[in-house]
Simulated scan of single mutants.
Amino acid sequence: MRGTGLLKGPQLLLLLLLLLYISGSQADDIGEEQECLTEGANLTVLCPYNDRKYGSSLKAWQRVRSQGPPETLVRTTTKSLEAESVRSGRFLLEDFPTDAVMKVTVIGFQRQDAGLYQCVIDLSPQDLFVLHHPYRLVYCNGEAAFPAQRKP
């Protein structure tokens, strides 16, 4: 039985347009979105995708290293069109195929979590499709947790 979904027609369209506007206004010159976080803060990011093409594909949240392949931190386990929630350590991935959105929450940000991350469609171990743009998580050393300012 299919899930009922979280959002319907106009609501989903409005959310996707809002996400596109926000991502465009916060992206820096190389297409990254930066988030300034204090230790212990939670962060949730939404990664929309094409439901017809990727609705029944595996999804993952990865850390991108300067050398070597990205490290998969959490991945869905089924290729179902049902909503799925998977947690690995402090990373929670929720996939809502009927809404065509993947939601990732970083729980209790730590200084060592600073770095570059990405949402991906995991077509096979050698075939990944990166959704959206990368997210750079920045440790803010006790400052208020606001998105980093766009470079002039």
Score class of each variant (00 low, 15 high):
Ser25Asn: 11
Leu15Val: 01
Thr44Gly: 00
Arg65Lys: 12
Gln34Glu: 13
Phe96Pro: 04
Gln67Pro: 01
Glu39Gly: 12
Glu94Gly: 06
Leu19Lys: 05
Pro69Val: 09
Met102Arg: 04
Leu73Gln: 04
Leu43His: 07
Tyr54Lys: 01
Asp28Gln: 12
Leu81Val: 12
Phe109Glu: 05
Arg63Cys: 00
Tyr49Phe: 15
Ser56Arg: 15
Lys59Tyr: 01
Val104Thr: 10
Arg87Pro: 03
Arg63Tyr: 09
Trp61Arg: 01
Thr72Met: 14
Lys59Gln: 13
Ala27Arg: 13
Glu94Leu: 07
Phe109Leu: 05
Arg63His: 00
Pro69Asn: 02
Leu37Cys: 02
Ala60Arg: 12
Arg75Cys: 13
Val74His: 06
Phe96Val: 05
Leu46Pro: 00
Leu19Thr: 04
Asp28Val: 05
Pro97Glu: 11
Thr77Asp: 07
Thr98Ala: 10
Glu94Val: 09
Thr44His: 03
Val101Trp: 01
Glu84Met: 10
Asp51Lys: 14
Leu18Asp: 04
Ala27Pro: 01
Val101Pro: 04
Gly68Trp: 04
Cys36Thr: 03
Gly89Ser: 10
Leu93Gly: 06
Pro97Tyr: 05
Asn50Arg: 13
Lys53Phe: 02
Gln67Phe: 08
Glu84Ala: 13
Glu33Phe: 10
Arg65Asp: 08
Asp99Cys: 08
Asn42Phe: 11
Met102Asn: 14
Leu16Asp: 04
Ala41Phe: 08
Asp95Tyr: 07
Arg75His: 08
Glu39Arg: 12
Asp95Thr: 15
Arg90Ala: 12
Thr98Tyr: 03
Leu18Tyr: 03
Ser25Pro: 02
Cys36Gln: 12
Tyr54Asp: 12
Thr78Ile: 05
Lys53Met: 03
Glu84Leu: 06
Asp29Ala: 13
Thr105Phe: 10
Leu92His: 06
Ile22Ala: 14
Pro97Trp: 11
Val64Gln: 02
Thr105Gly: 07
Glu82Tyr: 08
Lys53Trp: 00
Glu32Thr: 01
Ala100Arg: 09
Asp28Gly: 08
Tyr21Asp: 11
Val101Gln: 03
Gln34Val: 09
Asp99Arg: 07
Asp95Arg: 14
Gln26Cys: 07
Gly31Leu: 01
Pro48Asn: 09
Gln67Val: 13
Val45Leu: 11
Tyr21Asn: 01
Phe96Tyr: 15
Ile22Gln: 10
Thr78Cys: 06
Thr72Val: 15
Cys47Trp: 08
Ser23Gln: 14
Val104Leu: 11
